[in-house]
Design a protein around this nucleic acid. Structure first.
Length: 588
DNA sequence: ATCTGTGGCGCG
DNA sequence: AAAGCGCGCCACAGAT
């Protein structure tokens, strides 16, 4: 690895005059690729200022003191087609968007590229310091970053060196990465992820509005129900339990061990206290436990901690998205996680559009099954989607030899749904017998029937896992890879687990690809048509857009149109379908 | 007092 | 010991 000496270069000049910024704009025009970075007072775009704005290539770097000079002369470069490489681009995007009203476009993110290159591999670090060490053999010192927090006054030489080095390291890391990207055939995925940065930046920046009063009143109901369930548990268990000084039952029902002990005292022995195990107990305590659990979970998840995520400046909730949050390519969401809000419409409907605005909520229908149809070439799967039929019903009719539709024998349709999603991803007869509450023999029979009816699905899934084991990676239709750590020491359990992961990875990953492409295109369309609309959330196969009520119909059409286009960019054998609603709140 | 792993469960 | 994939968050338990 080459080592670059840069720390000994002469004094770094700090640009603190807007006229100088105008001059560097023309210099930047002649650079085909530039690196961009910022130093900020902190992490929150709504609270913290941008102190330094750095831009340049390997030959020349410019550091602008944003407290004294405006970067307005750079707007056309930042908003234009020139590629800008950044480490963790979404962060700088949001800071620059808020501070200067500039939406950077055509960003290239070394962090996301690294995640694409190593998806599925363990113990990976994606910070610039790690990447510099890995690719450049230099120890980048990130401790200087701390010095910018709440910084005032002049900048010292070390701070400026730090600010400049980040640009240089980022550019050098990128050129190493791009070699690997082309060797691995990951060009499309890298492009997709980099173009999607703006969409995820926007969703975080825009946030979503929560009707706090309504939320709290639901929470109050939940607390009451939780207490009722606990009293019920107490009444059953207390005659057999230890009392504390006040004669109260002193069982902590949140403790698995204490719960097991309490159950043992009334003659119920269980190995675990999972929902499934509890639900099989033939005793009134079972329902009380399940009720308690459900309400306890809600109260703890959506209580004080959740409400703290309301930003006191915008009054909205601004979650953090990890754009590549799962090794499949899916996004994950934290602080708070807005991808696992109870589907129970009481809670979702508390996420609202402000006065005069609407939410467009759109999702792909049967997305993963369509992807299975595309990849497996199964004639029934393909035919069903081409004819607009209901696959779960058709599968149910085939394996249960009974007429099934959404209205006839709906319980069989529900079972087929379980089978479709379970077996497709490697569920065994044991798992199936558990989730359908049937004997293992019956489950085995069902499983055989399923794969007899859809031999191409079985062949496809087997091929998926065979190839994954052979290649040590899976690929999606878009070419995204998920790598597996397999070696000669891998035991059979590890291999079995990888076999199941590999059956799922191309399907879940292709879904992620198409949703991300849809986000890119929808955002572009909104900007192009200057619509009063913004992305506010995405949940794997669903996209939520907030807009002025007067254009809600138009936005609905656009969202649907581009989701379908994005889907059909990857799927050619099956039509893609999107359902959407326009409402004052988040509901399907 | 703070960290880590685990069981349990919400969503797709 | 555990066998369908992918996540994040809560409380607990045990450790530091």
């Amino acid at each position: 690895m080459e080592s670059i000496k840069i720390d000994t270069e002469p004094k770094i000049e700090l640009i603190s005059d807007t006229r100088e910024v105008e001059q560097i704009a023309s210099k930047l025009d002649s650079m085909p690729l530039v690196a961009v970075d910022t130093e900020t007072e902190g992490l929150d775009p709504y609270k913290h200022k941008v102190l330094l704005f750095q831009i340049g290539n390997l030959e020349e770097q410019f550091i602008i003191d944003c407290r004294k000079a405006s970067i307005e002369p750079l707007r056309r470069i930042l908003e234009g087609q020139k590629p800008k490489v950044l480490q963790n681009a979404k962060f700088d995007y949001k800071m620059v968007k808020h501070a200067f009203g500039i939406d950077m476009e055509n960003m290239v993110d070394t962090m996301l590229i690294e995640q694409v290159l190593t998806s599925g591999l363990s113990d990976r670090r994606y910070g610039l310091a790690s990447l510099s060490e890995q690719y450049l053999d230099v120890k980048a010192d990130k401790s200087e970053r701390q010095s910018f927090i709440n910084h005032t006054g002049e900048f010292n030489e070390n701070q400026l060196i730090y600010a400049r080095n980040d640009l240089i390291y980022t550019l050098q890391v990128l050129s190493h990465q791009m070699k690997k990207v082309s060797e691995e055939g990951l060009g499309h995925t890298v492009k997709l992820e980099c173009l999607a940065v703006g969409a995820f930046g926007d969703m975080e920046y825009n946030g979503i509005l929560l009707d706090r009063d309504k939320w709290c009143s639901i929470l109050k109901e939940e607390k009451v129900k939780k207490d009722e369930a606990r009293e019920k548990m107490d009444s059953i268990l207390s005659p057999h339990s230890d009392m504390d000084l006040f004669g109260m039952v002193s069982i902590n029902y949140d403790s698995e061990e204490q719960l097991k002990n309490a159950l043992a005292k009334i003659g119920i022995k269980v190995d675990d206290t999972s929902k499934l195990t509890i639900s099989r107990i033939n005793h009134p305590i079972a329902q009380a436990i399940l009720d308690y659990r459900e309400h306890q979970k809600v109260v703890s998840s959506y209580g004080e901690g959740f409400l703290e995520h309301i930003n006191n400046i915008t009054g909205r909730i601004h979650p953090s998205f990890r754009q590549i949050g799962a090794s499949s390519g899916r996004t994950s969401c934290t602080e708070p996680n807005l991808q696992n809000i109870k589907a129970d419409s009481r809670f979702r409907s508390c996420f609202v559009a402000p006065e005069g605005r609407r939410l467009v909520v759109a999702d792909y229908s049967g997305c993963e099954l369509r992807i299975i149809a595309e990849l497996s070439d199964d004639p029934v799967f393909l035919g069903t989607f081409r004819n607009g039929g209901d696959l779960h019903s058709i599968v149910a009719s085939a394996i249960f030899k009974t007429k099934v539709s959404k209205t006839e024998n709906p319980e069989l349709r529900q079972r087929a749904k379980t089978i479709n999603f379970g077996l497709a991803y490697g569920m065994g007869s044991q798992g199936l017998s558990a989730s359908l509450e049937i004997s293992e023999d019956e489950a085995r029979e069902l499983l055989d029937k399923y794969f007899q009816s859809y031999p191409l699905v079985k062949r496809y899934l087997d091929k998926s896992s065979d190839e994954a084991i052979k290649n040590r990676y899976s690929t999606t239709i878009g070419g995204r890879k998920r790598y597996y750590e397999i070696n000669d020491q891998s035991d059979s359990r590890t291999i079995a687990s990888i076999v199941r992961q590999a059956k799922n990875a191309p399907i879940q990953g292709t879904n992620a690809d198409m949703t991300k492409l849809a986000l890119i295109w929808i955002r572009n369309k909104i900007k192009e048509k200057k619509l009063d609309a913004c992305l506010v959330n995405t949940i794997h196969d669903e996209i939520v857009v907030e807009c002025d009520e007067k254009i809600a119909e138009e936005v609905g059409y656009i969202v649907k149109e581009y989701m379908i286009k994005a889907g059909e960019f990857y799927l050619h054998k099956v039509p893609v379908d999107v359902e959407y609603s326009i409402s004052g709140c988040w509901e399907k």
